[in-house]
Design a protein around this nucleic acid. Structure first.
Lengths: 138, 138
DNA sequence: CGAACTGTAACTACAACAGTGGCAGTTCTG
DNA sequence: CAGAACTGCCACTGTTGTAGTTACAGTTCG
């Protein structure tokens, strides 16, 4: 939802969008959209202006916002689930599994994040516009 | 939990472990362990034998079981969450977001999986044994 | 037979999350 | 100034996923 909203904002860099407009495109709820955009604002990705005529705009160029930026702004916990609680200290394997898994999982998660950071909102906007044009040309 | 269990099984390739023994190391429950190991068995990673003296063993060498194998055996859905429901077809952006996100997210998930597939259970066993020896040498 | 296992269903408890209504505060416009 | 159009935020519901637990049937070995 965050990436969808950012892409919509990147589509029109002149005017701002309201949470209701974005919620329409998401077939979702304005309050939900404001919650998510609130996270993006805290992360410095978007601006919001209150009152009549207010709404949301990107805080910087779509070319300078990556999918990884959106991801970290919205998602907090790790993607790969760790032990629900520490394993037994009495087991020779259990003693080390948490640290071992943490190392491997962090490496895997970073590989994913690295790939996410290669795509920007501008890429998505361009691709969506291209696909839209192809549709209208038939 | 799956990786933890596989690592324990890889530690002793001669004898089998019971779900109770593995649950002890996990500070968890035998039934839970059997559920997870059941998935691993369905994926062809482990064997189980019923009855007295029964238990679990690796179905192939620890060097031929990767963290990615364990991951796919246990985890079903995608790691990166998609739209909860399709976006609006009326929106020029919304029409393409699902396909666009699917492409990007699959690429990111595959980067993570590729990294997971680089580490085997044998690696974890070796690392755990090494760390254990370092502890005992002090 | 009885002990020690797996296999599985049914249940509880809890946390995460999409969605919703309500309302206070802010800003522009007539 | 009054009202319309916004954001910000809280409290609540309903659903889903998941760790954990109890219970019990089936299997194997001594």
């Amino acid at each position: 939802m965050a990436i969808h909203a950012l892409t919509m904002l990147g589509r029109w860099d002149d005017r701002s969008l309201t949470s209701a407009e974005i919620a329409d495109s998401l077939a979702s709820n304005p309050v939900l959209v404001r919650r998510i955009l609130g996270n993006l604002r805290d992360a410095g990705l978007v601006w919001s202006t209150e009152g009549r005529g207010g709404g949301w705009t990107l805080a910087r160029s779509p070319r300078e916002i990556t999918l990884h930026d959106a991801f970290t702004a919205v998602e907090e916990g790790p993607v790969l689930s760790r032990h629900a609680h520490p394993p037994s200290e009495a087991c020779a394997i259990g003693r080390h599994m948490e640290a071992l898994l943490e190392k491997e999982f962090r490496a895997a998660e970073q590989a994913m994040e690295e790939r996410l950071s290669r795509t920007t909102i501008a890429h998505l906007v361009q691709e969506a516009v291209t696909r839209e044009r192809e549709l209208s040309e038939r």
